[in-house]
Amino acid sequence: MTAELAAWVMVLAIAAYACAGGTDYGAGLWDLLAGGPERGRRPRWLIDHAMAPVWETNNVWLIFVLIVMWTGFPTMFQAVFTALWLPLALAAVGLVLRGAGFALRKPTHRLAGRRLYGAMFAVASLLTPFFLGAALGAIASGRVRTGTAASADAWANPTSVLTGLLAVAAAAFLGAVFLSCDARRFGADDLVAYFKVRALCAFAAVVVLALVALPVTHGDARYVWEGLTGGWGLALVVLSAVCGLATVLLLLRRSHGLPRWTAVAAVALTVCAWGVAQRPYLLPTSLTVAQGAGAPHTLRWLALVTVVAVVVVGPALVLLYRLDTMGELQPLTDADTGAAGAPGDDC
Rank of each mutant, 00 (worst) to 15 (best):
R98S: 01
L258C: 06
G142R: 08
R42E: 15
L250M: 13
G147S: 04
L88K: 09
L209D: 06
G344W: 11
P331Q: 09
C181K: 01
F131V: 03
A295V: 05
Y281P: 01
R105H: 13
R279T: 12
L304T: 09
Y194M: 00
V318Y: 03
C19A: 15
V54Y: 03
A316S: 12
A92V: 11
D324H: 11
T23Q: 04
P331L: 10
R260N: 07
T82I: 09
L209S: 02
G99C: 05
L236S: 07
Q278S: 12
T75I: 11
V271T: 08
R185D: 14
I139F: 05
F73H: 05
S160Q: 04
T285G: 15
L165S: 02
L302Q: 07
V54T: 14
F121E: 03
G275Q: 11
W55A: 00
L95M: 15
V144S: 07
F102Y: 13
G244H: 05
A138S: 15
L317E: 12
A138Y: 00
V93F: 07
A13H: 02
G101C: 02
V161N: 00
L214E: 13
G142H: 00
S141A: 14
A266S: 15
D48L: 14
G314H: 04
T23S: 12
G231Y: 08
D182N: 11
T270C: 06
G338V: 09
L234A: 15
L12H: 00
G219D: 10
P259D: 05
S141V: 03
H297V: 14
F121K: 00
G40H: 01
G244P: 09
L165C: 10
R279K: 08
R279P: 00
W301L: 13
D24F: 08
A167F: 02
R322M: 04
R198T: 06
W30P: 01
E226D: 13
G233C: 10
A167M: 02
L245F: 14
Y281Q: 07
T325F: 12
C181L: 03
L249C: 10
F121R: 01
V238E: 06
D345F: 04
R222K: 10
V93G: 06
P87N: 11
A170G: 12
R105Y: 12
L299R: 11
L302N: 08
W85F: 14
Y25R: 03
G113V: 03
L245A: 13
V276D: 07
V276T: 13
T262V: 09
V276Y: 09
G21A: 01
R143I: 00
V192D: 11
V192S: 12
W8K: 02
C243N: 10
T146Y: 10
V60Q: 11
T229N: 14
